[in-house]
Design a protein around this nucleic acid. Structure first.
Lengths: 335, 335
DNA sequence: TTGTAGGCGTTATCAG
DNA sequence: CTGATAACGCCTACAA
């Protein structure tokens, strides 16, 4: 079914049908009603593809996630989907699997597909950002979230990782801990750096000397790493009474080691994670952590997009904004 | 950048450029190379929207999930994304939130968008299936997965819930348990019914009398329900030595109750869940469960689509297939 | 108030 | 081997 067929069936022009469907005022009530009735009767809805070829507006956005098997990114997805649905937008979802090549390929694909916006959290491999430049050149709205490049001019939605890590470390210090291990993320991405800096600054404020031997990396963020790293510290007789892990799963591994060694949690060693995965409240002892409100972030990502898009089509100058989403300390049994 | 601009820049026709880009053989090597070089130089890629208006092939599929905050559906998503990426397809993701109205709206939206295929797991509210009929009428490939309607003629990808539940119950029986509680899902959807039937048939085969008082529903599938239902059975002095929960999270709640009451797991009561969530191996005691291979299912969903799509465009008659994905019993500490 | 005509960027047919 | 031409379905200045 097309406008053409409808116009033939009713003996009016294609234009008139189109006008009615797009709520143009210059159609007589009589004709309008006739068309509306017929359209409803046959259940017609216009071909979005043709419309977007013409109008250069697809009502589709692309969301690139580093992966989908992560609680935090699920929530981001959920939040974006919520808001997009309300605004009548469709969302194309892609995962970069932390690969720069894939990420770049996805961006190109989305650009060919003429999406109205692209939301991206950079892969851990991404240092070259010219694919982000090409988004901007294509006049497509770019929103960076979570792992962002500060050098690229766009709206951003992030959490204050440094502040959050500071909060977590501060909490352990408040519990009387002074030898706090930091199981940190990989060396490069900004989030891992920021969390490390937050950790360091909390120590500094509390007048606790920084000890490099207490900081070890857990690049994959899984529980094996947490287990192994804590084990090796322990076996090397490095004393510690607190653990701040860059991810809940890593903290779970740490807890597992402590339990195996019958080390009392939190009396002897207190543990705090990062992200507030669903599992962190289900385990024993339940895990203290930093709650990253992923759903809210996802919603904010879309809101930013909608705002910018509006500015763009109404010819106003586009205002980039950086939204910093507050995190919460969640205290449970492990600290 | 468009074909037109390229053709002008090189002094050839639009047609020729298009032919080169689509690997038509009837272009001289010389011209072909010239065009290829230029296209690469300026980094041109054709506008997919225009192409799909013309070819009636969008290279986009729609995936409707009941929700994204469920480990199983995440894996489905992951699997579909994997296969779609390889085949050069884009995936629009939507969640029905178990709402029939939303589901129907999403289907219409996808149809207007002229997607090549729609993959759907029915919401719990869905009994009317005429929106599925309209997918078929639109000549769009429909693949049903997980929660399906048997009445609708389409390819299907499911797990054998009945067999899986039978396996789980059988396992508890093998462990010497005879009074096995079934924490079942809501009354209506087929999956919950099938799991219940599997439970029942395992008892029957083992010659254990079925006791209705051991079967209670946990409609939301969260851990509170598991906890509460087990508590109420226990407090009503209903004896049991095994628990088969319809979801891992429910089983987690059950474990929590047993631990609180210092009931020995698995000696006094053995527990098995369903789905193999990530958390089920992280908790103590780790949870025995049925592994639903979501990623494989997702990949199969896309493969089915690709197969059917090929049959359709090559003019062959379409063969509907039902793929039953085998599940695995995962034995851990709780049983 | 209604309709004509041109074009969005691509692909497919067919003639040269 | 190359290119002119029409068409996909819709929107929108502009003319009637």
């Amino acid at each position: 079914m097309t406008l053409k067929r409808i116009s033939k069936a009713l003996g009016v022009s294609i234009t008139t049908v189109s006008k009615v469907l797009n709520n143009y005022p210059d159609v007589s009530d009589n004709t309008r009603q006739r068309i509306l009735d017929y359209v409803k009767e046959i259940g017609f809805t216009p071909n979005t593809v043709a419309a977007s070829l013409r109008t250069k507006e697809s009502k589709i956005v692309g969301l690139i996630l580093p992966n989908v098997n992560h609680y935090f990114f699920n929530n981001i997805l959920q939040g974006v989907l919520n808001s997009a649905e309300k605004a009548g937008y469709l969302v194309i979802v892609l995962t970069s699997n932390e690969s720069y090549d894939l990420e770049k390929k996805h961006v190109e694909h989305l650009l060919n597909q003429k999406v109205d916006g692209i939301f991206i959290s950079l892969s851990e491999e991404t240092y070259n950002t010219q694919h982000l430049g090409s988004i901007i050149d294509s006049n497509v709205v770019l929103i960076q979230y979570d792992k962002i490049s500060k050098l690229i001019n766009s709206s951003k939605v992030v959490i204050d990782d440094r502040e959050a890590a500071n909060l977590a470390t501060q909490h352990l210090i408040d519990r009387g801990k002074r030898r706090i291990v930091h199981l940190r993320g990989p060396l490069m991405p900004q989030v891992a750096i920021d969390r490390f800096l937050g950790y360091k600054s909390a120590l500094e404020v509390a007048g606790i000397p920084f000890d490099q031997s207490l900081v070890v990396t857990c690049p994959h963020g899984d529980d094996e790493e947490g287990f192994d790293q804590l084990k090796s510290l322990h076996e090397n007789n490095i004393f510690f009474d607190g653990v701040f892990a860059h991810a809940d799963l890593v903290a779970v591994g740490a807890l597992r080691y402590l339990k195996r060694k019958k080390i009392k949690i939190p009396q002897e060693v207190a543990v705090i994670g990062f992200s507030n995965w669903m599992l962190s409240e289900k385990i024993t002892p339940s895990l203290s952590t930093i709650d990253q409100p992923g759903i809210i972030m996802g919603e904010q990502i879309f809101e930013q997009f909608a705002r910018e898009r509006l500015q763009k089509v109404s010819g106003n100058t586009v205002q980039y904004q950086t939204k910093i989403i507050p995190t919460n300390l969640v205290v449970r049994e492990s600290s």
